[in-house]
Amino acid sequence: MDSIALPAGGRAGTSNPAAAARRSEAFAGWRLAGPAVALLALLILLPTIAVVALSLTDFELGYDEIRFVGLDNYLELLDDRTFLISLGNTLTYTLIVTPLSVALGLGAALLIEADVRGRALFRTVYFLPVVSLLVAMATVWQYLLHPTIGPVNALLRLVGIAGPNWLGGSDTVLLSLAFIGVWQAVGFNMVLFLAGLTAIPRELYAAAEVDRAATAWDRFWLVTWPMLGPTTLFVVTISVINAVKVFETVSTITQGGPNRASEVLLWTIYQEGFVYLRVGYASAMTVVFLGILMVLMVLQYRALDQRVHYT
């Protein structure tokens, strides 16, 4: 009854079945991708363009007037002590947190992977901070580091040391925040390194042993470290980016203080934009922030292309 042959024609222009199939595939493609495209444009593309545009104006929320001011906002940033301090603090924070959290993450992964005993337990313990509410844990650390009633200083008193006001002193506040940052990031870096370690073929270690790499130290440099290259680069990048985005701990504990000693980039942007509502000026800061992220990504791609590709 039914014929295998498709009815010819019907609609005009469907005479070429290949073209019709292509058109219907394209139609289906756009229909499926449509919502994502619309939201991508509305929530990412447009706001990004808007932030750049706003940075060239003096727009303040609550005032109807909006004026094009060219690069004035950026020029103002160059003289803005708070912003410069903020940039400096963010840089210091990043320079402390990144190497420590990467090195400790790698160390923890290597130690955990070295033997089966307690492997699951330690992995769980080190990973806890990653899934803990950072605002809550920051609060706990604030109590632990409290100058008078905090257990840390109580412990120090036991050995006769008068502990500083960790989060209240301008000399120690950034260091203390960095410590919390490291505590929070190590577990994340550790699981990435663990994944990298398990991907190294066992036979390479066997070959290294037969090739007279007698000590664990030799085998680390001959096999582990080079084979972890891509993972390490990736972990470093993600650690830097997360450090540059430090916000929760500052907002919870120090609010940039004391005396701007813990003023960091996102906190400054938040204050300018959402507390003082100077949208134009805050947009300029945001563009700088975005620029920093872009540079970091470009650096990562460069490094990835040059060094750590083996195949």
Binding site: A206, A207, E209, D211, R212, P226, M227
Partner: peptide, 28 residues
């Protein structure tokens, strides 16, 4: 293994992927 003075060829060859052929041969 490193003290045995024995060489081994592995099924997967187990070459160090980050080293050139020359560097691989030079390792032992």
């Amino acid at each position: 293994p490193s003290e045995r003075d024995i060489a081994m060829v592995f099924q997967s060859y187990a070459l160090y992927p980050h080293l050139t052929a020359g560097q691989n041969i030079a390792v032992p």
